[in-house]
């Protein structure tokens, strides 16, 4: 019978990523509910900085998987190495943060190990011995509960902030080196250069007021009504990704997981649905007003003021009222 929870820990510049600390926190909570040990695995050419960082956490063991072929992440390298570790430990659960890296290989790893992955979960619940996984569906409009059955290992990736890293339990953990059989010929992709995208002209992180526009604006010509409102409020224009993809505004105005993270005094969104990738970039705003015609729009879940209505009717009048109030 498989036993234990293995967390695969991601790192950048010799530091454990926050999303992995959240995953460890989630694993600790699942462990408390199921009475299982928690292990962490670090993959790198040199694991020492990360294993040292993790050794003061409440973990039953840390596996250091060091190999020159793991200096750069590749889906083949990680899959071959982790499949060997998972065969040895035979965990009931494998937990990772739902990062870009996890998106790239964890489904493949699960399949290679004869298991299966539920991706982008926001909660794990093991009450009564049965595991229920919750994830957002329909771009956040609804939640879905999934049960898991079978003897195989259950792989789970957790959405950013699904668990609170501040609740991580401390302890002391031993480190075990795990040697893997991994050769250059196992890796089919060649990693070339890494580079930063275009430099930013606007720094939305410094804005006090952001009027953010989404695809609900329908077409580029309608940007004007948002710009007028932004001008009246003395704020800057921000945008969801599709608006930037379509080139209505520059990519440097994109808010979200692949754009900027902002926390203005006022975030006023127009025709943005509130997909998680957008929300992670703006949920720290002090005050959020959202205008959307769909009463189920997930942006309303995090808004202070939810205005259910047609932005084309409301915004021009709002602009006039703001001017009058100033």
């Amino acid at each position: 019978m498989s036993q234990g929870i293995l967390v695969i820990v991601e790192h950048n510049n010799a530091k454990v990523n926050r999303i992995s600390i959240e995953a460890v926190t989630g694993a600790q909570k699942l462990a408390a509910a199921t009475g299982q040990p928690v292990y962490a695995a670090v993959l790198a050419n040199d694991c020492s900085a990360m294993t040292t960082e993790l050794s003061s956490k409440k973990l039953d063991k840390i596996y250091a998987v060091a190999n020159p072929e793991l200096a750069d992440y590749t889906p083949d390298g990680y899959t071959v190495a982790l499949a060997q570790l998972i065969e040895r430990i035979d965990p009931a659960y494998v937990i990772v943060g739902h990062s870009y890296q996890a998106r790239d290989y964890v489904a493949k790893l699960a399949l290679r190990c004869g298991g299966a992955l539920m991706s982008d979960c926001i909660a794990m619940n093991a009450d009564g011995g049965n595991l229920t996984l919750t994830k957002q569906v329909f771009a956040g409009k609804f939640n879905a509960d999934y049960s898991f059955s079978g003897e195989a290992t259950c792989f789970i990736s957790l959405q950013a902030a699904a668990y609170n890293a501040d609740e991580l339990e401390s302890g002391s953990a031993s480190v075990e080196d795990f040697a893997v059989n991994l050769n250059k010929s196992d890796i089919r992709t060649t990693v070339l250069e890494k580079f930063e995208g275009t430099k930013k002209d606007v720094d939305l992180a410094a804005s006090d007021i952001i009027v953010a526009v989404g695809r609900g604006l329908k077409e580029e010509a309608n940007l004007e009504i948002a710009e007028e409102l932004a001008k009246a409020l003395g704020g800057d224009i921000g945008a969801s990704r599709p608006v930037c993809d379509d080139g209505w505004v520059g990519a440097d105005r994109q808010v979200g997981s692949s754009g900027q993270t902002v926390s203005p005094k006022l975030y006023l969104s127009l025709g943005i649905s509130g997909a998680i990738q957008h929300v992670v970039g703006m949920k720290g705003s002090k005050y959020i007003v959202a205008i959307n015609k769909d009463p189920h729009a997930p942006i309303f879940d995090i808004a202070d003021v939810a205005v259910v209505g047609d932005l084309f009717e409301i915004v021009p009048k709002l602009t006039e009222a703001v001017k009058a109030a100033k």
């Binding site: 539920m118 996984l133 808004a303 003021v305």
Partner: peptide, 21 residues
């Protein structure tokens, strides 16, 4: 299959929101 969809539902809101209609 390993995963079975049990139910889909409207999420419970965690934040207090003033709804204007």
């Amino acid at each position: 299959g390993a995963f079975k969809l049990e139910k889909i539902y409207t999420p419970v809101k965690s934040k207090e929101t003033a709804v204007l209609k």
